[in-house]
Design a protein around this nucleic acid. Sequence first.
RNA 1: GGCGCCGUACCCAAGUGGUUAAGGGAAGGGUCUGCAAAACCCUCAUUCAGCGGUUCGACUCCGCUCGGCGCCUCCA
Length: 505
Amino acid sequence: MAEREFKLYDTMTRQVRPLQPLEPGHLKFYTCGPTVYSYAHIGNFRSFLAADLVARTARALGWRVSWVTNITDVGHLTQDDVADAGGEDRMEKALKSKEGERFANVWDLAEFYTRAYLEDWARLNLSEPTVRPKATQHVREQILMALALVERGNAYETPTGVYFDVESQPDYGKLSGNTRDKLQEAVRDVVLDENKRRQADFALWKKDDKHLMQWFSPWGWGFPGWHIECSAMARAYLGDTIDLHSGGEDNAFPHHECEIAQSEAFTGKPFANHWMHVRFLQVEGEKMAKSAGNFFTVRDLIGEGFDPIALRYALISVPYGKPMNFTIQLLRDAEGNVGRFREARRRAAGSALLPSSSGAAPPADAGGDSGAELAANLDRIYDEALEAMCHDLNTSVAIAKALEGVKAVLREPSLDGSMGEAAVRFLDQVEALLGICPVERDDAGACETALIDGRAIESWIDERTAAKSAKDFARADAIREKLASEGIELRDSPEGTTWSRKPKL
RNA sequence: GGCGCCGUACCCAAGUGGUUAAGGGAAGGGUCUGCAAAACCCUCAUUCAGCGGUUCGACUCCGCUCGGCGCCUCCA
């Protein structure tokens, strides 16, 4: 295959340009992860899914991918500038909330939500990053970096902490456009901290011996500032200069701007060569907010009976660079399409046992070598899907291509062995690239989120099958309706009757 | 005020100046089926918010207008 370019929009240069790993064929990629003070919502996951798709696409190109995504398990202040007033951080706030009652302390809480996050990650079929470091396990690196920045004159100590001096990096603001001069005008009603030289200066370390999470540093007890953790962890695992850094659009400023400033001041080298920002998600046309009643976590929707893979499908169906309007209708549409992938898998698996018409000794019949034809067709379609992904992750087109392939498979009235093989290979490739047609696991779906008695359903199905063979269709239909009213859908096929849950929402 | 995004059929949505404006859903028709579902086939935008401009040629580039939206110090 000819060398293919992987193009992505770069926030820094504001243009779509090829991703160019410093070390050819080896992508070093950092993604800002969540603060684990609550369950992640679907907007969080839209961002992580975009990163997952970058990693998948790069792997599909044969690149080695070193993908690091952190877990922020330190609670950072809700207001940077008021170190003392309230002194409450997100973790602490969560601990005091109703949901937080069951936790012994913030560490316990962070552990709980970290686990939930990893579960959601797996349910949505995101691929595993190379390393998933935790901020609390890299406090030493953060302190050392802050210390070096003070020694170099890029940061200074105050009675309340250590602050990065934004004036020391003249190009501060180059990513977001919030340059130092513009910041002066733009700032609205932010509380001023007289300890800081300039209002745009940000904390590397907060002195606080009453904080629920604290470490000892050259400046006494306290905790690290938010931005420094990503700089420290990215450097620890990926080196001074990384190829790509991603996050939600809100991260561009101030978080990424601050990362750039401190990392580049520290190493004297460019921090990241490419920046990717994922647009926010809206729900039913409005900003997702708890007060609006349109706030969905991953587990909320799965709990309603929606297929996690369909949720994934829906969340990636709109390219990451556009604001996305998530709707229940979109999720329903996704379920239908994910069902087609399943159907294709089912049929392909069933065909594997049948002899190939194009086997070792192909009978040169008039029918031709349709196995080879299908394979060639699917190869072409997959290649077009990959091409779409290489064009700034055009998931809309890539998914359309994947569906085109599925249609080609389902169109065949019957699949022989070689066609089945081609179909399986295609589905595996699409799965590796997009993650929307995983091989079913036995434990998938079914009873885990609702209390459904699978055995009772089976016996109803048996009874209905008996009624059907006795031509007692009224009885058979009554059973179908009874189960339907309980959210169970039956489906007859030549191999027998199967059941599945129907979402309530 | 600063930075940026979007307006394509009933809905979601792709479209990298030039052959018939992807794909999905909904809807209608058909094949198949005890029913239901699934699957497949067919139909469904002479037109891309509006107005100008550049061009041999624009949904695609430029300008303006109208309309919607995001971020701007810790929310992905």
